[in-house]
């Protein structure tokens, strides 16, 4: 390398460091440091007046059972919600990628993705309205089905989950189905395979990366969900997220709250790792949020 090339390389690297500095600072101060604080607090004690008092104890972790219902609800409704999103979302993604005309495809896709980024709060509130006493139950009442209660049930929470997260499932599946070479489907058909056999042996395996990504994204976000159980579960069906709000903002038990948060993160990391391991070989994971 000539001297000037070395100098150029050095100045290029210096520039890279300068450009990275602000974001590196942000990551350190607002991601790494706060997560370390949560870890430290989780082995601390609750101060008399609430908040944190320095200590080193595992009592908070041993006490996690006190919030068992929240963990149980999250760990049953989050996987159930993910599965329903998959079953409901796959046919739509398939329709968009394979059947819809290329002209309307982009428009139809945008129509699916947009709600996910739009006023989650207000869209969930719409279901409070629909499932509440004067919504659907009243309609059912008119046609003779009486005494149906929908709001504040696990069913209402599941409806809210599917409504809120369906777009996030459809999008990655659409992306992997769109990449699929349509000639493979024709070849399968020409070779006399029944439509269902083509689907099972060609389409489904090739769309596996999208299915894996979609399930992972929905599951991860559901694990930390707060608004849906709060608004549609009405304090009866609550998630870990609701327990965290209670512990941090109402009962001010920060150390126990930190232990719950750590447990949530650990459960997430473990399930996602196991899941990726179990599905390895079925495709990569191109995490895409748009």
């Amino acid at each position: 390398m000539t001297d000037s090339a070395v100098i150029q390389e050095r100045s290029r690297r210096r520039w890279a460091y300068v450009l990275l500095a602000p974001s590196a600072f942000w990551y350190l101060a607002l991601l790494v440091l706060p997560l370390i604080v949560v870890l430290v607090y989780s082995v601390g004690e609750r101060a008399e007046t609430g908040g944190y008092q320095a200590a080193f104890t595992f009592d908070n972790y041993l006490n996690l059972g006190a919030r068992w219902t929240a963990f149980q609800n999250t760990l049953t409704l989050a996987p159930a919600g993910t599965l329903i999103c998959l079953l409901a979302g796959y046919p739509l993604a398939y329709y968009l990628a394979v059947k819809a005309s290329p002209k309307t495809r982009l428009f139809l896709l945008i129509l699916v993705v947009v709600p996910f980024w739009t006023s989650f709060l207000i869209r969930t509130y719409a279901w409070m309205f629909i499932l509440g006493g004067r919504g659907l139950p009243q309609l059912l009442d008119y046609i003779g089905i009486e005494g149906v209660r929908l709001i504040n049930t696990p069913l209402a929470v599941l409806v809210g989950i599917v409504y809120g997260y369906l777009p996030l499932m459809v999008f990655p599946i659409f992306v992997s189905l769109e990449k699929l070479d349509k000639r493979l489907l024709e070849a399968s058909e020409d070779l006399g395979a029944a439509p269902f056999a083509t689907f099972r042996q060609v389409t489904l395996p090739l769309s596996a990366p999208g299915v894996i990504t979609g399930c992972m994204l929905v599951f991860i976000l559901l694990m930390g969900e707060y608004l849906i159980p709060q608004m549609l579960g009405g304090g009866k069906v609550f998630f870990i997220g609701n327990a965290l709000v209670d512990l941090f903002l109402q009962s001010l038990n920060w150390p126990f709250g930190s232990a719950c948060a750590m447990a949530l993160v650990v459960i997430m990391v473990v399930t996602v790792t196991l899941y990726l391991k179990a599905t390895r070989g079925t495709g990569g994971r191109d995490v895409s949020l748009m």
């Binding site: 790494v32 944190y52 997220g241 948060a261 997430m268």
Partner: peptide
């Protein structure tokens, strides 16, 4: 490291980011 942090920032639930920021800032 940078790619890892970007991944973590997107994947950690908002609620955990919220409480972590709360207690780190208050402290």
């Amino acid at each position: 490291i940078f790619d890892g942090l970007t991944y973590v920032a997107i994947m950690v639930p908002g609620i955990v980011i919220g409480i972590a920021t709360l207690i780190a800032l208050v402290t």
